[in-house]
Simulated scan of single mutants.
Amino acid sequence: MDGIARFQTPQAEVFCLTDGGTDFGAEVFPAVDAQTLATRLQAAGHSTIRTQFNAFLIRQGQSLTLVDTGCGTLFGPAGGQLPARLAALDVAPADIGTLVFTHLHGDHCGGALLDGVPVYPHARVVMHPAEHAHWQDRDAPAARVIAAYADRIQTATGGQEVAPSVTVWDLPGHTPGHIGLRIGTGVVIVGDIFHSSALQLPDPEVATIYDVDAAMATQTRKDALAAIAARDQVFTGGHAVAPHCFARLATEGAGYRTVGI
């Protein structure tokens, strides 16, 4: 189904739901020179730095966990498709029991509110305590989401379970409380450890201008990718691009390439 990718694990049915997409400008990856940029895009079969804004649905019987909420109305026509993706799976916002935020940048939390009102009226909301603290009292969509869901927010750190067999994976750097999720032992959601698989998987040293702590984000990316490859895990991320929304990693030189599944 267009905009929806599915992967079945022993613990859950996992969906990557594309809220929208855009092209990044070269300035987002300031360390990548023009020749390297062109070479890597060509190798990936792309002519631009493509990205998607992804959210994830974890279905375990009648239990539904949503991971991130897409852009909502923040980015105009570049986002806002998550409600239609959920509807295509016969899921209404009121059906979501748990809402987990990998972090609170606008393309991950913008869809949590509509006209200032929570879109997911029955969901308990989970985020890392460092993320909750980082966005307090800031003039940002994140602060408005925190205020709107305040009485339903719970915090969780690495190893804590947010749904059966679904645990938090601390991945700091992109933001202070940036997290991923482990689903059983074979599947991981990595949030924003990369924004362009074409540029950052071949060279995990490449950072983006969106990283709050670029050095920490880079080390986190290197460690996470090495672990995924060593364990032969299936991974997906907030900016994974179809047709490899779910993929494995193969080592290639000092970096990696995606292997379709």
Score class of each variant (00 low, 15 high):
I153V: 08
D68R: 05
T220H: 05
A224S: 04
A148R: 11
G116R: 04
Y149E: 00
A26S: 11
R85H: 00
Q136D: 00
A94F: 03
T51G: 05
V28M: 14
A87T: 08
A215Y: 02
P93G: 09
S197R: 03
G255T: 08
V125G: 04
A207F: 13
L74D: 12
H132G: 05
E27Q: 07
L99I: 08
A133N: 10
V91E: 03
C245N: 12
I96W: 11
V234F: 08
D137T: 07
V14L: 13
A92P: 02
A12S: 10
I261W: 04
V100T: 07
V126R: 12
A156W: 10
L225T: 00
V188Q: 13
T102Y: 00
I179G: 04
T9K: 02
H103V: 05
G110A: 06
G260P: 13
D2I: 09
V117Y: 02
D232M: 02
Q81D: 08
M1E: 06
Q35P: 01
V14W: 02
T258A: 10
I189T: 01
W169I: 14
P93C: 11
L74K: 11
V162K: 10
Q154S: 14
D115I: 00
A38I: 04
D115P: 00
A207E: 09
S196M: 11
L225P: 00
T9C: 01
D213Q: 11
D192C: 02
Q160R: 03
T65I: 14
H244Y: 10
F194W: 15
S47T: 13
Y149L: 02
A5F: 06
G80V: 01
A226C: 02
P141F: 13
D137R: 10
H132F: 12
